[in-house]
Write a protein that binds this DNA or RNA. Structure first.
Length: 272
DNA sequence: GGTCGCCTGGTA
DNA sequence: TACCAGGCGACC
């Protein structure tokens, strides 16, 4: 269930459940995962102890005391289920980490797109991520500079983890709605004032959702995502759905006007 | 820059 | 039966 807030929630749960525990075994059940993590590398995890768990963007890094890192990405549908080794595996179990105290963490992922990689010690995990949205080093000026090199639509740029780490398809739409920016606006053309508003909106959206899931109505009421054809919550407009970069974008054309691309009127076709 | 494939399920 | 899905890397 992964965007930054959902991954943060998953990481917090991991910390409370497995930090300090000794690994009994790590098993992978899905062929796509077997292709990434060799049987040998998995076997060698036996006896290792979990030192700490880190989130970077939507990535989860389980640091072991010996320096190795179990690197997990949920992609679209992944989530953790915490149970014990004596229970039957959940229906969509793709991998499981079991510990010597009998507890177990199951990677539950109906679509099986999640990834697990084992990194050897001494080799830093290179993720090529931009700043976290809540990082104080991320100023509007810095964000504008990062966007200034992109001729792509702002919505697509927001999904580029090298610009901001952690935003996904839902909260990108939500942030643009909140900042009243047209998702089709060319990233490089946004003014500093507009980018300032955008950054504040991103932070508000992330902060509102953190600790919960978008499906938790309490934590993350969505203003535009998946509301095609419904009335805009802000004013008298109808939410549209368009496709950008192969993904759905939802927006209100009446109130999201900042950066709207100018429509150049086509010249009348000359008769020949 | 845009499109496709990875996988498999839920839903209209 | 079709389409859609919170991600991302490979490809043109």
């Amino acid at each position: 269930m992964p965007e930054l807030p959902e991954v943060e929630r998953a990481v917090r749960a991991l910390r409370t459940h497995i930090e300090g525990l000794e690994i009994e075994a790590v098993r992978v059940f899905h062929p796509a995962l077997r292709r990434r993590a060799s049987a040998g590398a998995l076997k060698k995890l036996h006896g290792a102890r979990v030192a700490w768990v880190e989130r970077r963007g939507k990535h989860q890094l389980i640091h072991l005391e010996d320096g190795r890192v179990v690197h997990v990405h949920f992609r679209m549908n992944g989530d953790w289920i915490f149970d014990s080794a004596s229970e039957p595996l959940p229906r969509f179990a793709r991998a499981a980490l079991s510990f010597v105290n009998g507890s177990r963490v199951v990677l539950d992922d109906s679509r099986a797109l999640s990834t697990i990689d084992i990194h050897p010690a001494e080799t830093p995990v290179a993720l090529n991520l931009g700043p976290e949205p809540l990082d104080s080093s991320l100023t509007a000026e810095a964000l504008k500079a990062a966007l200034s090199r992109r001729r792509t639509a702002i919505k697509v740029a927001l999904l580029d983890q090298r610009i901001i780490a952690g935003l996904g398809n839902i909260y990108a739409s939500e942030s643009l709605w909140r900042a009243k920016i047209d998702p089709r606006a060319v990233a490089a053309t946004l003014s500093l004032a507009t980018v300032t508003r955008l950054l504040a909106a991103i932070r508000a959206v992330i902060a509102r959702a953190t600790g919960g899931r978008y499906t938790d109505a309490e934590n993350a009421r969505l203003d535009v995502y998946d509301r095609e054809g419904k009335r805009c919550r802000r004013r008298d407009g109808t939410i549209l759905r368009i496709v950008q970069g192969g993904r759905s974008t939802y927006f209100c054309p009446r109130c999201q006007r900042a950066g709207r691309p100018r429509v150049t009127r086509a010249l009348p076709r000359a008769r020949s």
